[in-house]
Design a protein around this nucleic acid. Structure first.
Length: 422
RNA sequence: GGAAAGGUGGGUGAGUGGCUGAAACCAACAGUUUGCUAAACUGUCGUACGGGAAACUGUACCGGGGGUUCGAAUCCCCCCCUUUCCGCCA
């Protein structure tokens, strides 16, 4: 959620940046500013009424002590009057506050200056690419066929016990999952991230904290009886560890990592793009999260991008990095880099990581702040990235490293797997 | 699921309807002392929204929401959460 004073003082700048999202927010922002102005006016009115009432109450108290009971009783009339007036003002005020909140929920984060205008995914900029597109022979197979051939994943079984999008990993397929999770966690640990095992269900407040609520309510599985949500990413519990927290400057940056399964309803997506491992309702992911001082966040974003680069290089996968254009960027993000791995057998790019700086957008709702050297309290910047999500990595590994004898496991992963080939 | 006890500032924790935005202690910050560190001493020290160039100042906030009262952290009602005991259980 953006901060009203920011919008008020930087209206032009905010609007021109927001326009990069290929949507016009000027009407909403204008409403925010004008509603807030009315709000402040009413607040002032109320404050003055209350100030008067407080003053009178104090005098009455003093009169009572002096035993001037009648004089005191005489003053009560005015406070009753004030109370009536306050009621009206309060009602209007809370209405305006609610209105303001709803309006603020509509405005996404202001894109970073490096973000370009764009309507959608086609306009994302490739800012880096690494590795050659793997040349595969005629016998190349997509991962879903490789999975069947080598008995790594049984999609049908998953359908039976749960439904589509809930695969069952078997044998070397299961061990590969475990190996990847451990590999990613170890690498994150070496890079200074502290591993956390967090709950896989979160409450409503956490959903609001990181911005999944109210914007993406339908994307999360909701456990009605207990009013809890299954996490769509470890970002939610990890970042919310620092909800309502006042940090000291020297504690920053805070670097967190964790493995969790992720649950996404993915309502409305069907077809060939979601075949096999390309899109699932449940998948595994290792997430990295940072909380930082405002002035450091973009350097740290760079570090996170480099960390993910390192992982993909060790897995010997060809990939590219995209800087998302305004139209394709998530609601809460200021700047996002997507990582895509080329899948030679499917002949398409698969998104395997999304690494973003949210600046103060999440921190504002989270109320995660720190006290700077100057004694001033300010919001932290939050960042996160997938490092990495498993299913498409598995797809890419299987497809890119297949040969006539099966599938080769990249060297870096062998110690974690315990086998060199599938 | 049943019973009981609790929820107060960055932390611990007092708090009799008005002198309580809130004692005390810890932490933090500034200073004095000191060869350095430590200790000791002195002072400062909550958050949010307003007004003001500033000093300063108004209001709100003691889990959340209502109510009683001229006046509520304090009394009443509802809700939420935590802890402990019992039950169930990996």
């Amino acid at each position: 959620m953006l901060q009203v004073p920011y919008l008020r003082e930087n209206t032009e700048k905010a609007l021109s940046s927001l326009a990069k999202r290929n949507k016009d927010f000027s009407a909403t922002v204008e409403s925010i500013i004008s509603v807030d102005e009315s709000r402040r006016k009413l607040q002032n009115e109320l404050d003055n009424l209350l100030a008067e009432s407080n003053k009178i109450s104090k005098i009455i108290g003093d009169l009572f002590k002096e035993g001037k009971r009648e004089e005191a009783d005489g003053m009560k009339a005015r406070t009753t009057e004030i109370k009536e007036e306050c009621k009206g003002v309060e009602t209007n005020l809370s209405q305006l506050e609610e209105e303001l909140k709803q309006l603020l929920y509509l405005v996404p984060n202001v894109p970073h200056e490096s973000v370009v205008f764009g309507k959608g995914a086609e306009e994302n900029e490739v800012v880096y690419s690494s590795g050659d597109i793997t040349a595969l022979g005629e016998s190349k197979l997509p991962h879903w066929e490789l999975c069947e051939k080598h008995k790594l994943i049984d999609f049908e079984l998953g359908v039976k016990i749960t439904g589509a999008g809930f695969p069952v990993y078997i044998g070397k397929g299961a061990r590969l999952q475990r190996a990847l999770i451990n590999f990613f966690l170890e690498e994150a640990m070496k890079a200074g991230y502290t591993e956390h095992q967090v709950p896989h269900l979160v409450n409503e407040a956490s959903g609001y904290g990181t911005g999944q609520l109210p914007d993406k309510e339908g994307q999360m599985y909701h456990v009605g009886v207990d009013d809890l949500y299954l996490i769509p990413t470890a970002e939610v519990p990890l970042t919310n560890l620092y909800r309502d927290v006042l940090l000291k400057e020297e504690q920053l940056p805070i670097k967190l990592t964790g493995y969790t399964p992720c649950f996404r309803r993915e309502a409305g997506s069907y077809g060939k793009d979601v075949r096999g491992l390309n899109r699932l309702h449940q998948f595994d992911k290792v997430e990295i999260v940072q909380l930082s001082k405002q002035e450091d966040s973009y350097a740290l974003l760079e570090d996170m991008v480099n960390h993910v680069k390192g992982l993909l290089n060790k897995l010997e996968l060809p990939f590219r990095i995209l800087r998302l254009c305004g139209g394709d960027m998530g609601f809460t993000s200021s700047l996002t880099f997507d990582f895509e791995v080329y899948s030679a057998a499917q002949e398409r790019w698969l998104e395997v990581s999304s690494t973003s700086n949210f600046e103060t957008f999440q921190a504002n709702r989270l109320k995660c702040r720190y006290k700077g050297a100057d004694g001033k309290t300010q919001l932290v910047h939050t960042l996160n990235g997938s490092a990495l999500a498993l299913p498409r990595i598995v797809a890419a590994l299987l497809e890119n490293h297949q040969d006539e004898n099966g599938v080769r496991i990249p060297q870096a992963l062998v110690p974690y797997c315990g086998f060199e080939r599938i």
